[in-house]
Nucleic acid binder design. Structure first.
Lengths: 152, 152
DNA sequence: ATACATGCAAAGTATTTGCAATAAA
DNA sequence: TTTATTGCAAATACTTTGCATGTAT
């Protein structure tokens, strides 16, 4: 038996002296338990059900703080709101350009696609992002495809 | 001698029946000639010098159209405005998280990092994006680092 | 000639901020 | 008790839209 990813992150944050308000715990738990890559809006909606008075400002505050602390990831896109990912292990994403759904895919270790030219620029690289864009199975069959709003 | 990337794209668009207004040509030329990955604002500013009456709406319209046509790429980020890339060949980016500067890096062919799991999801993948985040040489030495606004 | 692009100003959306009230440590 | 976080409302930043005018083909 191993502790949930949520419990692990929580302990980690506590040991780092991060203040753990109920709001933060709920947001973190939700992100660690879902695989949905929700938007701030969806997180707000979800967490509101248990904690009615929470505000969007707190949701955004918390998401930034957790991202900065490295326990979640922010995925930003040009034409839709950012999505948040509780899976902090190394992986890539499959993004549906029609409905916005995001799926996780395993990803080769970073060394696989780093080149000497990369280092030649002298950047101190801390992280990377690999994403594939396309149409998900649902949106391929339903000719027109559902909008970003409907499912995902 | 080979035709400039701009001339090539222009001919390509013409043959595809795309209406080539002076505004569009200027924006496209600028993007094909710079390696700066400018924002919409920067493009507007630059093109305004030759074509004073151009509007932001036209800049955005054009950027979307050109992206859709596949001759440029849009790079969106969470905390700053999108940047546009006239280099339509396969490559990755090095992004400075301090000043926002974006550099091109060669990138292995897509097959190098696709896995069976990727296909198992059934997505029809059309494109991908690979980005490395870190601190550029300039921002590493200048301890505090310049802000997104200053240089890049 | 005509469909499509432009430019303006107004609207929209996502996200951020200031600040007084509140609660975690 | 102290200092960071919350929640509200107002503000900002970026991007999009409606519509009358203009223009590339």
């Amino acid at each position: 038996m191993h502790r949930s990813s949520f419990a692990k992150s929580l302990a980690d944050l506590k040991s780092r002296g991060v203040r753990l308000t109920p709001q933060r715990q709920m947001i973190l738990r939700y992100l660690k338990e879902t695989h949905e890559h929700p938007t701030a809006e969806q997180i707000y909606h979800q967490v509101s059900q248990e904690f009615a008075s929470i505000s969007m400002a707190t949701v955004y505050n918390t998401l930034h703080r957790l991202t900065e602390l490295g326990v979640i990831r922010e995925l930003s896109y040009g034409d839709m709101s950012s999505r948040y990912d509780g899976n902090d292990s190394e992986h890539a994403h499959l993004v549906c350009e029609v409905c916005g759904k995001v799926a996780d895919v395993p990803c080769p270790p970073i060394e696989r696609f780093t080149s000497p030219e990369l280092f030649a620029h002298g950047y101190a690289v801390g992280s990377y992002r690999l994403e594939f864009y396309g149409h998900c199975p649902d949106c391929q069959q339903s000719g027109a495809g559902q909008r970003d709003s409907e499912l995902n």
